[in-house]
Design a protein around this nucleic acid. Sequence first.
DNA 1: TATACTTGTTTGCAACTTCAACTATTCTAC
DNA 2: GTAGAATAGTTGAAGTTGCAAACAAGTATA
Lengths: 145, 145
Amino acid sequence: MEMLDSPSLACEQHRLLHDIYILLDDGDRQVLDATGLTPLEFAVLQRLHRDQGRRLTDIGTELFCVKSTITRLVDRLEAGGLVRRTPDPDDRRAQRLRLTTRGVLVRDQAIRLHSEAVERRMAVLNNEEQFLLRGLLEKLHSGLR
Amino acid sequence: MEMLDSPSLACEQHRLLHDIYILLDDGDRQVLDATGLTPLEFAVLQRLHRDQGRRLTDIGTELFCVKSTITRLVDRLEAGGLVRRTPDPDDRRAQRLRLTTRGVLVRDQAIRLHSEAVERRMAVLNNEEQFLLRGLLEKLHSGLR
DNA sequence: TATACTTGTTTGCAACTTCAACTATTCTAC
DNA sequence: GTAGAATAGTTGAAGTTGCAAACAAGTATA
């Protein structure tokens, strides 16, 4: 018997969320390509400031990825002159991460390009639908954690 | 100037979709771990039948991944005895992919485990909300392609 | 203070995915 | 029918990520 039950509502949503993510991520990659950043690198830059340092681990947990991923990603960003590691004055194990001047520039350009693209793509839904969707997604998100 | 505009509605939704995807994918990985499959391997098995062959490229485009990814993924599945490559009678370049007996078993178990888990996780939303969400996601999805 | 436990970061290793180049076959257009 | 383009699949090299173990430094407990 090869017959399977038709996929449940929940599974359909799961698949839709998956496919939408793939499409969005692909779009992000294309847009960010102009800045030389991957989506994850972009996400890290987005969370940094020029003056105020952040610890690698904190960024890692925010982005749902393990510490070693951040270590190597920061290695790349640092090699590219976008960020700088500085020792944490309060905890000698930790590193504080700050944007360089160039990092600020690149980040701001990336944010501009990215949010324009996101606006454009999400414009498939009108304002009312977007509010509705956000509400549902927020509920789902907080339920999943 | 470090001030940035507060993120737009569209960007918020983008971020929510991203975070939800990460959480769902992580859950999938945990559930599927019992079957030894990655989410992508599972997705391939889901699209196969015992008797009816499918071409690698078709599966690849359905799953939004490049041909070489499918080649190696199928290498793994074939080494594990879950699928079998057979030459396409109509096109000597192509390979038809079929599930083995064991493949059917593993796939069915995986589908069972996976959809149970998905039901459980999506149950955060009640039925009405799920219908609403599906409608919005479908619209977004078809708009993004 | 000595001991064990936790935390922040890095490193080696393995797995997975992609890109580009390649072979073999099929399709198209003259 | 034949030259050139397109398609199916594979392969090698490179990039990204995660896991486990290491190390250093902080915290807690006796």
